[in-house]
């Protein structure tokens, strides 16, 4: 039976409304993740099988995209030399928020077999924040797809906040980047 007593409707605050919209957006975001493949290393060779008929990435709503502006995920596949790191950061900063980073293989985690090279960085998350690592040298397609599913889970649980981290701790990241790369004056498109 309906109560005759008048109860005031609880008005949602602006933050709550924003959060609700954000949750709705999260549903769409986790079901349509577009990749920008930064194929620097050998792990890239595992991507074609995970895209095509054998494992079919598209059934998760994922697919490759041409430019960083369109993409949601920056997929770093393999080792990163200092020269490519500079370009990786440039690309990462061009992506539109919210954006996620996946590190593929052991090289972005600890340097992998290149851990003692002078030209290769060892830990990717010193320079840009990483949401999901897929370990292995190289990881096979199953584990790559598993990594994608993990990312979706963490978007659902609101733990995929790397892009916020990059914004909040921007100075720290910038300092690390500067320490590794140094400041470079660009002369023209071929010489740094």
């Amino acid at each position: 039976m309906l109560s005759t007593k008048y109860t005031e409707k609880t008005k949602l605050t602006k933050d709550e409304i924003d959060r609700k919209w954000w949750e709705v957006g999260d549903y769409f975001r986790r079901n349509s993740l577009w990749l920008l493949m930064y194929c620097t290393g050998c792990c890239a060779v595992e991507l074609p099988p995970s895209m095509t008929s054998a494992y079919d990435m598209e059934r998760l709503g994922m697919g490759p995209m041409a430019t960083p502006r369109q993409a949601d995920i920056l997929l770093v596949s393999g080792y990163l030399s200092l020269k490519t790191l500079r370009r990786l950061i440039y690309t990462y900063e061009q992506m539109s928020e919210p954006k996620y980073v996946i590190g593929l293989g052991s090289c972005p985690i600890n340097g992998g077999i290149y851990h003692d090279s002078h030209a290769v960085i060892n830990q990717l998350d010193q320079y840009i924040p990483v949401d999901v690592y897929v370990a292995g040298c190289m990881p096979n397609p199953e584990s790559i797809l598993n990594g994608f599913v993990d990312l979706m889970e963490s978007i659902k649980n609101k733990t995929a906040n790397s892009w916020k981290k990059y914004r909040d701790n921007n100075e720290w990241y910038k300092q690390n980047q500067k320490d590794a790369l140094g400041e470079v004056i660009i002369h023209d498109e071929f010489h740094e």
């Binding site: 430019t67 960083p68 370009r87 440039y90 061009q94 498109e189 740094e192």
Partner: peptide
């Protein structure tokens, strides 16, 4: 100038 250049630094 902040445009997609396949991550090349173009200054001109």
């Amino acid at each position: 100038m902040d445009t997609y250049t396949a991550a090349n630094f173009v200054h001109d």
